[in-house]
Design a binder for these strands. Structure first.
Lengths: 115, 115
DNA sequence: CTGGAATATACCTAATCGGGTATATAAAGA
DNA sequence: TCTTTATATACCCGATTAGGTATATTCCAG
């Protein structure tokens, strides 16, 4: 299981992560709250732990899992260049780039917008 | 191909999206820039278009693809609750703990540390 | 030390997905 | 018209993966 993006592609894993936002939880609590079988929970937690999304401490027979959200920064960072698109003027870009000549390499990267 | 998260789980698709940040590109341009075979590019573009990540206009035989990044807002929104974790103060977490839903409270609540 | 609770893991299977190749379609140019 | 360019799609295949079931392990209670 390679990338951060593949980890959070799984709905159950996102649910687990979101659940852990509020507080740390034992496997059994996650199991009951998310209504999924225990082996499924454990398996996803294993993936999340290997990827550095969560960490666990031992509490008797229980394992308490808590969030370690540094990994999600990678997603946040990847998202950054796209934020400027939905933050404001998108239409000027669309209209102006309609006539781009694609015959040769389009190494020219247009800046955001030129007033 | 269901969720936004599954769409961007694919490295090639993320590469295409990142490439389109600078400007719209034809299929051939994407093919050359990312060094991937044309059917692969077309297939990923199809997925991205169906998911609303890109849109295309016809330019003679070419198709020009441009970003339509509204879909990525969903990722951004999902990420929001986690940002408070890596943005310094841990005490914001405790405010969040008040929002724990007690309706699905499991039978055994560990009395570890509850005020 | 025996039984039960909590968690992890091994195994199998079905479904999905991405890459590769070949081909279809459409438009431009000779 | 015939050819070339540009893109889309159909098909097959190998790899990955998530779910389900059963079992192993660990720890507490009696």
């Amino acid at each position: 299981m390679a990338s951060v993006f593949e980890i959070i592609a799984e709905p159950s894993r996102r649910a687990i992560l979101s659940l852990l936002v509020s507080s740390e939880q034992s496997v059994g609590q996650i199991e009951r709250r998310l209504q999924m079988p225990q082996p499924t929970v454990s398996k996803h937690l294993r993936v999340l732990r290997d990827a550095g999304f969560v960490e666990s401490t031992v509490d008797a027979q229980r394992r308490l899992y808590r969030l370690k959200p540094e990994s999600l920064r990678e997603v946040d960072a990847w998202l950054a260049p796209f934020r400027r698109f939905w933050s404001a003027h998108l239409d000027a870009l669309e209209n102006h780039l309609d006539r781009v000549d694609p015959s040769t390499t389009p190494t020219a990267i247009p800046a955001k917008r030129r007033p």
